[in-house]
Amino acid sequence: MSETAVSAVPGYTIVITGAPYVSQAPATAFAFCRALLDSGHVVDRVFLYGDGVALASALNTPPSDETNWTDRWQELLVANGIPAIACIASALRRGLLNEQEAHRYERVAANLTGGFTIAGLGEWVEAVATSDRVIYFHGGA
C-alpha cells in the first residue's frame, strides 16, 4: 500500500458475509487468506458484514470434534497483524457487542472475540477505495 514498497502482487481486502456453521464462507475465506499470506500477499483487512459478523462471537461453541472457526480466524489475524472489522449495524442487530456497545445499550454482556473491532461501513468504503482487490465470500450456497 505504501508508495515506496514495490510489490509484484496485489493487496487484498476479504469480505465475509456468510455465517459459520450456517455457510462455508468463513472456511473458504480462511483457506484463501492463508494461501494469500503463504504466497507473499498483503491482506489489508478483513471485513465482516451481514450474517458474516457471527464469526466474531466469542460465544461460538461448536462440538470439540468440529473446527472452531472463530478461534482459527482470531489466531490467523493476530499472528499476521491483519485488521478485522465487524460492521456495527450488522453486529448490533445480531447480538454481537464489544464492551463499549454493551455499556452504551445497557446489555448484560459483551461477546466480541479478540482480534476483531466493531466499526461502520465506512471501513468497507475505505477498503474498496484503497485495496487492489476486494473479494467477497457469501453464504447461501
Binding site: V9, P10, Y12, A31, F32, R34, A35, L36, D38, S39, H41, R133, V134, I135, Y136, F137, H138
Partner: peptide, 19 residues
C-alpha cells in the same frame, strides 16, 4: 486449483465478482 492456485487466478484478474 488449490487455494494457492486460486490466489494466482485472483491476482490475474483486476475485477472479481462473487455470486
Amino acid at each position: 486449483l488449490d487455494y494457492i492456485g486460486m490466489t494466482h487466478l485472483t491476482d490475474r484478474f483486476p475485477r472479481l465478482i462473487s455470486w
